[in-house]
């Protein structure tokens, strides 16, 4: 069954690139433009995996993950954060918020797919 990935990023360029890489790998991709939109879309449509940016208006990536995890139903949905910040402290921050893993921006499409496969059955 095709898995659905929710991609959240305020940059249209990023959304398009994620769409290109992920749909090319056979995933169904739905999009949101910031944390609030992400929470709404997730609750309206559901997703198997979430990929989210950190820096976004209205509600950032961390806020999104925390909000998402607050609902027990979402506990098992893997979330990957897109980040240009790959030092240990930032990773911990992501983990603390509830991220399953991360992808470093700008991302290599191959690594992106690998990361997705790593966290999703």
């Amino acid at each position: 069954m095709t898995k659905t990935i929710l991609t959240i990023d305020d940059s249209r360029t990023m959304r398009d690139m994620l769409m290109l890489a992920l749909s090319g790998a056979g995933y169904r991709v739905i999009q949101a433009v910031d944390g609030v939109d992400g929470l709404e879309t997730l609750s309206a449509e559901g997703a198997d995996i979430v990929i989210t940016d950190i820096n976004m208006p209205r509600l950032d990536g961390f806020g999104f993950i925390e909000g998402m995890r607050a609902d027990p139903a979402n506990r098992s949905i893997p979330v990957l954060v897109l980040t240009t910040e790959s030092d240990a402290a930032k990773k911990q921050r992501a983990r603390d918020a509830g991220a399953t893993g991360w992808i470093v921006k700008p991302f290599d499409p191959v690594k992106l797919i690998e990361a997705v496969r790593r966290v999703a059955a």
Binding site: G35, L39, L59, G63, G67, A70, D71, P72, A73
Partner: peptide, 16 residues
Amino acid sequence: IAPAPAPVEVSTPPAV
């Protein structure tokens, strides 16, 4: 895991 549709609480992100 009963997916009780608890209202999602949007916690104020520390960043803002």
